[in-house]
């Protein structure tokens, strides 16, 4: 549990960071909170020659409202999300989810940008970003670009980030007024990744589901948007039959790995249950 040798860089601007990353090439990695990267380095599963620490770049931090969007700097920590009135008011589901990530120590250091850029299927924020229709701002030596969260994840630890690019901000449309939301996560203990988790944002109209998005965490090598499951509940009052149909549609797209959290069959089964529970809880919150 001792990392290999590396050099450390601490640029002050995004431009410098991008320049460093592109000149140092493949052997350089951005360092955010370090709570995914450092454990991997200690196991020598990651052996970067260079760490480019993003903590010196002030512009990467902060939460601001931009029209009907909330824009969050990549280096904003989970703790800062939890402490933010803006998040509590316009994106309470982010609050609910951040509280289910690890423990206060990890949340003081771990960043939203690191969580979504990491590409680990166990991370909670990516599925939530899909559910909310978020987009990511990436900056590289060739300039900046925006990419939808739904286009970003390609496989376990594979993302649309090009070498030398960094993620600078996450921009999230504020859900419609009166939308209900829930993040249901089954885990074995504090500090554990999800055995299965589901994010739901929906609106109700006259007791029936008017819009719905469902995201799934740790049930596939990438986060999933369960579109068929969401369709299955549209126009329903979320009666038992509709819930079961949604769960079945969600289970159909799951392909989790077997691990100490349980065999594949179990993880899919509880994945379906998380979907049903998240739908029920979200509906109860919808106005």
């Amino acid at each position: 549990m001792i990392p290999g040798p590396f050099s450390y860089h601490r640029p002050a601007t995004v431009a410098d960071a991008v320049k460093l990353l592109s000149t140092l090439g493949d052997e350089a990695r951005p360092l955010a909170g370090g709570h995914s990267l450092l454990p991997m380095m200690k196991l020598r599963l990651a052996t970067p020659d260079h760490l480019v620490d993003l903590h010196g770049i002030g512009t990467l931090k902060g939460i601001r409202r931009d029209g009907n969007k909330v824009v969050i700097g990549a280096m904003t920590t989970q703790h800062e999300l939890l402490a933010s009135d803006e998040i509590a008011k316009s994106l309470p589901i982010l609050h609910e989810t951040a509280l289910l990530i690890a423990d206060p120590q990890v949340r003081y250091r771990g960043t939203l940008g690191g969580n979504v850029a990491n590409g680990d299927p166990g991370n909670d924020m990516p599925a939530l970003m899909l559910t909310l229709g978020a987009s990511y701002r990436l900056e590289g030596s060739g300039g900046g670009r925006d990419i939808a969260a739904s286009e970003f994840y390609q496989g376990a630890y594979f993302t649309a980030l090009e070498p030398g690019e960094i993620l600078t901000a996450i921009s999230i449309p504020v859900p419609a007024a009166g939308a209900g939301y829930a993040y249901e996560k089954l885990k074995r203990k504090i500090g554990d990744y999800a055995t299965a988790a589901a994010a739901v944002v929906l609106t109700m109209s006259g007791g029936k589901v008017a819009s719905c998005a469902i995201g799934l965490t740790n049930l596939h090598e990438t986060p999933l948007l369960a579109t068929d499951a969401a369709k299955a509940v549209m126009g329903t009052s979320l009666d038992d039959a509709a819930l079961k149909k949604a769960a079945a549609a969600a289970v159909a797209i799951m392909s989790p790995a077997a691990d100490a959290r349980g065999p594949v069959e179990y993880r899919k089964h509880v994945g379906g249950i998380m979907v049903m529970r998240a739908l029920t809880r979200a509906a109860a919150r919808a106005k």
Partner: peptide
Amino acid sequence: VVTGSFMDFFMPTAVE
């Protein structure tokens, strides 16, 4: 060994 770290070897916290 598939339970070789505290990520998988169940070590309860005060919460559990």
